[in-house]
Structures are given as C-alpha cells and as structure tokens.
Design a protein around this nucleic acid. Structure first.
Lengths: 245, 245
DNA sequence: TTGGTTGTGTGTGGTATCATACCTAACGAT
DNA sequence: ATCGTTAGGTATGATACCACACACAACCAA
C-alpha cells in the first residue's frame, strides 16, 4: 500500500487521521485505495457488504429507493467518516443504496478484517461507534428538514454539507441527480438553483455548481446544517465544517 | 428487583428476552422497573443520559425540536428495544428529546453498568448494536416518508408501528400531540383522522384513538411500514410486527 | 457537420398542506 | 352546577410544490 500513498493521502480521511499511531499501524496494511467514479454503486439495497470504505476525496450518498422509483438521500459521507456501518453494527446489509456523488478516492478494508479489529473493543471500535452516532444525527436531522423546511433551505444545507467534504468549490452535479438526492422534482431544483445563482451565492453551468458565497448560503440555510455540524465536531473532535472549526 | 417482577414482566421487552440465560443473569440485578407517565421527558436535548431504558409497556418518542418550536418524531421505541443508545455509542447525549408517548413500565439500567457490560464485547454488545442498526433504518425510512408521502399514509404507518408496541388497541393520544410527532398542523391530523374513522379503520373520541381494522390501515399505509418491520425482524430475529411474524 | 443525447428553461394548471381564525364540545375542578 | 380549560370541528384564502408538456441549448460521437 505504501506505493499508493503518494496517489492520495490516507490521512485525508479524518477518522483514520484521528486514530492513535499504534491503532493505525495495526490496520494500515489492510487499507487499499480505490478510485470511485461518479454514479457508481458501492453497494445496493440489501446487498451484502464486502468492504468498509474510508473516503478521502470521494463523497458517497446513502439513498433509499421506493417502489415507484422515487429516491431520497438519507445520509452523506465523505472524508469525515466511513461507509458500511452495517458491517460492524450487525446485519451486513441495509435497505439503502450507496452511490458515488463526488468521484474520488476511498480506502477500503475487507469485512473480515474490520470485524476482527472491531472486536478488540479498543479505540478503533470506539471511533467507529462515535461516527455512527454522528451519522444517526445527520439522518435524523435530514428527516426533520424534509418535513419542515423549504426546498431552498434544504438545498443550501446540502450544498454546505457537501462543500465541507470537497477540496474545491466546484462540483459536478446535474439538477436531475440532485433532485434524486433531495427527493424533489428536477424542475424544482432548477428554479431554486436559479434563485441562488441570481443572488450570486453559487454559479451554475451545465452539469456544474460552484460555491461562490458560502456565508450567503449559511444565512439562508436552516438550522439543520449547524446542528449536525456541531454534533460532528463534538463527537469526532476535529472540525470538518468550514463554518465551525 | 425480584419483588418488582410481579408488577411487570421484564421479558416483555424483546431485547431482554432474547439474551442468553447467562448474559441476562449478569445484568438482571441491575435492572430497575420505573413507571413512565404520558408526556414525561426521559431526557432532553443534549442532556447527559444517566440511564438506559428497556421499555415493556411504555412507548417512547424521540423528538427533534426546532428553534421556532416545531417538533418532529424521528424514532419510536417500545418493547422492541431500548432508549439511550448514545450511552454506549459515545457522546452520552443526543440532540433529540425523549418523550413518553404511551405511559407504562420500562426497566432502567445505570449508565456505568451499561458501559461495563457493553465493553465485554459479547452478546450484550452485539444485541445493542443490532438494535441500533434497526433504529437507524427506522429513522432513515421516516426521513423518506416525510419527504415523499401524504399525511394520510404517514398517519397509517405511525398507527401501525405504535400498535405493534401496544398491548391493547386503544391509545391515549390527542390530535395535538400527534401533530407534534408527525410534524404537521393539528387541523391536518383532525381531518385525516376523520377520514380514517369514516372508513371504520379507527375509532376516535376525545383524546383516544382505537385501531379497528388493522388490515385496512395496512392497505392505505405506504411501503415504509413494511420495510422497517421486515428489517427489525431480520436484525432482531423476533417478530414485533403484528403483520410480519 | 450533423444528428442524437443529455441537461436545462419555462408555462399551465392542479393539489396538498399551511396559516389564521373562530366556534363548539367534552371534561375537570371547585 | 358552573366555569375555565382543553380537545376538536370547520371555513377561507394563501402558497409551495407537483404533474405534465415542450422547447431549446450544450455537448458528444460518427
């Protein structure tokens, strides 16, 4: 794996970065970098998970898919965490589908190795559980946001949360893809994006969204972004959010 | 504690019931029955949890409360599980408030004892984590339901999920309380309940709702109820749902 | 260059849910 | 028995979002 670390630094993943030296040393040789392309399905609904993924530059969306084909993102994971909690929580699968929302690198670890390390019950376990707790907060707050807040507010929240997990200010993202994450119609996304662009908070060109004025987005976004970010900071100690460090 | 078991059987809680004899023996003396009254706050947002609760006849709602006072239930726990996952997941608190939605008994266990037993890393730990995984599914599916489904469908889902955790068909529940759980206006609840009552699926009198035709509710409810119930069965092995055994 | 595909802009009309307001019914306490 | 409080019924108008429909624009491949 050392031959690959130049490709991408494993410590760009905040969970891995916060492991004590000895703990990290124990798992280092088990981490394998993989490139994840936009739209790729990491694992599908109820599919057995074979790997745990620690994203660095990649961002993954956890989607629920309804019988009629409607979809909704329930959680987002990037360099702040890991994908595949069912591997150590039990059950080995979930009803959600994990899709690459932002192409990039992740480091993966085989299911068996994850379980072996987890069962030692040490720092590794504690960190994984703390992250899971943070993820639960994110999912719950998304539930709230879905019920109580306008598309505009939700879009701002989503942009901020993504931005925190990206290296640049520009993301490859179509209105259509985004509509599947927010669980609204494509037209609704188009109109809302136009509104934000008109206020010079973002720039929008075919297939791209660029964050221009982060503070402006924060001022429109609902409290949901703040609540989740603060809880991530509290539980994981290290600031991912560009707002709360 | 043996003097209290006649009051209420500890094995009415499915999690406790599914512990192997030896594991249960190790924690039995640490379980203390408590009566939980309607509307009581088990713990508030960001409050440190001192006990883990295993409900038997009580049902607890996990609520998120917004700055403007709006509330929304993100998860419900009764005899199927436990309340206070942050105790063993890490962080000792969550942004949610836990409120008694259905008065009754729960068995509680001190935080320190929970952690001690959890850290043994045995069946107790595995069961708690599996339950947490099931709870995550519930929260995520609620998020989906909030976005994609009508109040009517959601109310049916809620009634079915509650019913699975109750002993009788009658619940003490006002439209107002319910509106705070579903995150909609009281008037919306009133109208929807009237619709269901007109079709003889439920009976409604001041402060009470009685389930009359469960199958009828299932036929109206969205797929969300089914998905969550099946996942509970898969992860926790024992059927709580009155539909899927 | 052309033609197909994908992404975006826009319009018309429908509907679920909201906000506000007010009234009546049931119940509980004195 | 009465009065205050809480629960529930109903009506009016506003609005956010949806469903459908179609035009156009950017990009890609041959």
């Amino acid at each position: 794996m050392n031959t690959n670390t130049d490709l991408n630094n494993v410590f760009k993943n905040y969970l891995l970065a916060s492991l004590p030296t000895e703990t990290f040393a124990a798992i280092e040789s088990k981490l394998e970098p993989v490139y994840l392309g936009l739209g790729e399905v990491l694992y599908d609904s109820n599919e057995e998970m074979k790997y745990l993924y620690f994203p660095t530059t990649a961002i993954i969306s956890m989607l629920y898919i309804m019988e009629n084909g409607a979809t909704l993102e329930v959680g987002m994971v990037g360099n702040d965490g890991l994908v595949g909690i069912a591997l150590f929580m039990g059950g080995s699968s979930t009803p959600s589908r994990s899709v690459i929302q932002n192409k990039g690198i992740a480091f993966r670890m085989k299911a068996k190795e994850v379980r072996r390390e987890f069962e030692k019950g040490d720092v590794f376990q504690q960190l994984l559980l703390r992250f899971t707790q943070a993820l639960i907060t994110q999912i719950a707050q998304n539930a709230v946001c879905n019920r109580l807040h306008s598309i505009e507010k939700q879009l701002c929240r989503w942009l901020l949360f993504s931005h925190d997990r990206m290296e640049s200010n520009k993301m490859i993202m179509t209105h259509n893809f985004l509509s599947g994450l927010l669980g609204v119609r494509r037209e609704g996304v188009t109109l809302t994006i136009q509104k934000l662009a008109k206020r010079d908070l973002i720039e929008n060109s075919r297939g791209n969204i660029t964050i221009i004025d982060r503070q402006g987005l924060e001022s429109i976004s609902c409290e949901c972004y703040t609540i989740v970010s603060k809880e991530y900071n509290r539980l994981l100690g290290r600031g991912i959010s560009r707002t709360f460090k």
